Simulated assay, not measured.
Amino acid sequence: MFHSLRRICDGYADGAADGGPEDRARWEARGKAAAKMRTLMREDLGVGPLTERHSPLLDDYGHPAAQ
């Protein structure tokens, strides 16, 4: 999770466009990392998996997609 956030910050520092394809890919990777982290933490706590996604995918405009 930390590494995906670091890549987002580094991308902006390197001049990546907000909402551009590379930016959206980094945010999607962050969402997947967050989902993996939640799964691992819930397994560690001995509770069942979540039934819904809490980090929405980005739409074509770089905004969280409506679900």
Rank of each mutant, 00 (worst) to 15 (best):
D59V: 02
L57E: 09
T39A: 14
R7V: 00
M41T: 15
G48H: 10
Q67M: 07
E52D: 08
W27D: 01
R24Q: 10
D44F: 15
P56R: 05
Y12A: 05
P56V: 03
H63Q: 15
V47D: 10
D60H: 08
M37N: 10
R26E: 08
R38H: 06
H63F: 14
R38F: 04
K32T: 07
R7Q: 01
D60W: 07
G31F: 06
R42V: 05
A29N: 09
L57I: 02
R38W: 09
Y12R: 09
R42C: 03
D44N: 13
D10R: 06
L57C: 06
G20L: 05
E28M: 15
E52G: 03
P21Q: 13
P49F: 13
G31K: 09
A33T: 00
D44L: 14
E43K: 12
A35R: 14
A66I: 04
P56W: 02
E52Y: 10
A16S: 10
Q67N: 07
R24P: 03
P56K: 02
D59L: 02
I8P: 02
L57A: 09
C9S: 11
L58A: 05
R7Y: 00
A65P: 00
L50H: 08
L45R: 07
P21L: 12
A13W: 11
D44I: 10
R38Q: 11
T51I: 04
A34T: 09
C9P: 00
H54F: 09
L57F: 04
D59N: 11
H3N: 10
Q67D: 10
P49W: 12
D14C: 07
R42Y: 06
Q67K: 09
E22H: 06
M37F: 15
Y12W: 02
E22D: 12
D60A: 14
H54K: 07
R24F: 00
E52M: 05
A13S: 11
R6T: 07
V47S: 11
T39E: 15
L40T: 13
G62H: 05
D44E: 14
A13K: 13
K36E: 15
R24G: 00
L40G: 10
A33W: 00
A34Y: 09
L58Y: 04
S4T: 08
W27M: 06
E22C: 01
W27T: 01
W27C: 01
H3Y: 03
D14A: 14
R53V: 13
A35T: 14
F2Q: 14
A66L: 11
L58P: 04
S4A: 14
L50M: 11
A17R: 05
R26D: 11
Y61A: 15
R30Y: 15
P56I: 02
L57N: 09
E43D: 05
T51Y: 06
G31R: 08
D59S: 02
P21D: 14
G19P: 01
S4K: 11
R38A: 12
G46I: 08
A66W: 05
D44S: 15
P64T: 01
D14P: 04
G19H: 01
P64L: 00
